[in-house]
Computed example of a mutant assay.
Amino acid sequence: MDALPPPPWPAHAPKKRMFERAGDQESPPGSGSVGLDLIGALPDAVLCTIISLLPTKDGARTQAVDRQWRPLWRSAPLNLVADRDLSGNKRKRVAYVSKILAKHPGPALRLDLPSIHQSLYGKVNRWLRSQALTDLQELHLDYDGEEYMIFPLPLSALRFAPTLGVASFSCCSFPDLSTQFLNFPHLKQLSMYMVTISDLSAPSLHFPLLKQLTMRGVTISGEALHSMLSRCLSLESLLLDFNIGIARICISSPTLRSISFPGTFFFKELVIEDTPCLERLLPPTPDHCMGTVRVIRAPKLQVFGLVSKGISKLHIGTTVFQEMIAISVTTTMRTVKVLVIESVGPNLDAVIGFLKCFPCLERLYVIVSNSYLLARTNELRSTYLPPQRQIEV
């Protein structure tokens, strides 16, 4: 066998790095050392970043690691999550939050206050005014929605609007903002659950860089929703679920890529008016949508469904479907690759009608409704099973 070619690097070995040479040295007998503390050798800025990513309790405990680590927790951006990992006892959690905010000088990376009891409203308001929360980037404020009670959102929470990048609010109502302009210049993700937004507050909220908006159980009028959406200049994903007070939705957005209604949603009309970047449209589930859906302009739509009899009328361009039956097929959408429809039985005509409108489909999902399956099961049982073996469903 031929000899291997000589290596491309010089014959003499390069000098070892300092930590390699130090690691080669034998530890003094009985010292118990197994090598260098490579983590401790990292720059303080890197160690502070690591501490900020740790759970709150673990981050604070790093002060006990070594003398050099003691000042790092106070220098690292605060990551404060007041959940059961901080303490299983609610009173201790409250005490720990107050103690941490009193000792940490800031700035803050994250504040997460889950399941806040209404009795803590005043204390939460004081927490939010703490100097430790300067330049807060992520805020999660979740009141304990006992018996679906809604609590006012503390005004002190709105002082973080200039710095927030991620925010979520639960079981609260936005204050009247009719006399002020509230801009969230860096906010990219916003989630709201059981939140009330009045017609006076909505026009004052501006989200120029917001990418994802999730609204579940939100009480808001259609006019207020349209006002909010018109100020979301970079929105890409919109999720609406079980919202109250919206009779008609008309969506026009140059940036939206996904619109979904994953659960319960009652409306009279949903209009996708002008969405040049829309790729996914997921209408409400069949048991809860009783209105009209109009898709006027969505030239990049690729995923469409679930479409069912729950939609009384479906307009796609000039094509019209009445409860799954094609009335007129004059528009085709060649961009749609995935279509999901619900069938109440083996209605081949309805499926063929949809296929004419979407000639370039790659995947077609036909979901048989539970009501049809139940009726068909009972029919088969009554036909083929002896009377003494028939089963009620």
Rank of each mutant, 00 (worst) to 15 (best):
W127A: 11
L158W: 10
K123N: 06
V94I: 14
V124R: 02
Y96S: 08
K103Y: 01
K123Y: 00
S119Y: 01
D135A: 10
L158A: 10
P162F: 02
L153S: 06
S87A: 08
G88F: 03
R110V: 01
G106E: 05
L111C: 05
L113D: 04
N125W: 00
A167G: 11
Q118P: 05
T134F: 06
P107L: 06
D112I: 04
T163L: 07
L111N: 06
A167F: 06
T134Y: 02
A157K: 07
A161S: 12
V97I: 03
L141W: 03
S168P: 07
R129A: 14
L86Y: 01
A95T: 05
P154C: 13
R110T: 07
N125F: 01
M149W: 08
K99G: 00
R93Y: 06
N89D: 13
R91A: 03
L164I: 00
R159Q: 15
F160T: 12
K90V: 07
P162K: 04
L141D: 06
I100N: 03
R91Y: 01
S168R: 14
I116Q: 15
R129K: 15
L139V: 10
I100K: 03
V94L: 09
V166E: 13
S156C: 03
E147A: 14
G145D: 07
E146K: 12
Q137A: 14
Y121N: 08
E146C: 07
L128T: 06
L153D: 05
D144A: 08
L158C: 09
Y148P: 05
G88W: 01
G165Y: 00
S170H: 13
P107M: 06
R126D: 14
Y96D: 09
S98Q: 10
A157M: 05
Y96R: 08
P154A: 12
L128M: 14
M149H: 11
R110W: 01
A132M: 02
R126S: 15
D112Y: 06
W127S: 09
L136T: 05
L86D: 00
Y96W: 11
P152E: 13
P114Q: 12
